[in-house]
Amino acid sequence: MFEARLVQGNLLKKVVDAVKDLVTDANFDCSSSGFTLQAMDNSHVSLVSLSLRSDGFEHFRCDRNMSMGMSLGNLAKILKCAGNDDIVTMKAADDGDTVTFMFESPKEDRVSDFELKLMDIDSEHLGIPDTDYAATVTLPAAEYQRICRDLSSIGDTVVISATKDGVKFSSSGDVGTANITVRQNTTADKKEEQVSIDLKEPVALTFALRYLNSFAKATPLASHVSLSMARDLPVMVDYQISDMGHLRFYLAPKIED
């Protein structure tokens, strides 16, 4: 039996809305340590890695490790029926072929349940090595979203260059060229405006903006996002989900041949 009760139910809605355009069907893996998902987009250029720890749920029971294949589009439709403040409970029998979502209003005066058919999805899991990143930039998630949106009107690739005085996002196309530089400001009076750069050595990498834009759909999940980069390696775009875990994206670089 798998049963998980999430008081901040809208978190699940935000997670699914953040990934449903990148990944259509995916396996959610349940174990005693938590609820995770790892999936690549169809082009295998980007990867989503969700991890929600069991101690972040109000109640979490997983008698046997199980993998639940779901259509993220259908899951999003079901979660749209949940109230923003509803408590969400997921339930699945060990050998069942459905998963039930129960939504309870805060005053418990409205309870609804939706049953979703599970799918058989053969997903190849990738081993993501621990990487000693040359640079990790942490900036307001809304700022990252704006940069990606602004630059995608200029070109379809962005060069992200991290140096000690800042991180520069550059793009060029038929319209022209654009450079957006964000400087470190750990002294910003408001914490949510802080930008920090942990630099071991300068690094510059080129990425397709359409994926970076898609990752920014996770903005509602966290105040900040971290970009971790190392030469000729995928970038890790990391949204920390407070007290629960993270929603991470990896994107392979474009390399000069």
């Binding site: 899991h125 090595p129 990896y250 390399i255």
Partner: peptide, 14 residues
Amino acid sequence: LLVQYGLPDFFTAL
């Protein structure tokens, strides 16, 4: 020429 790589070029399939 910029070549778009795939993640399997960097991460091993388990």
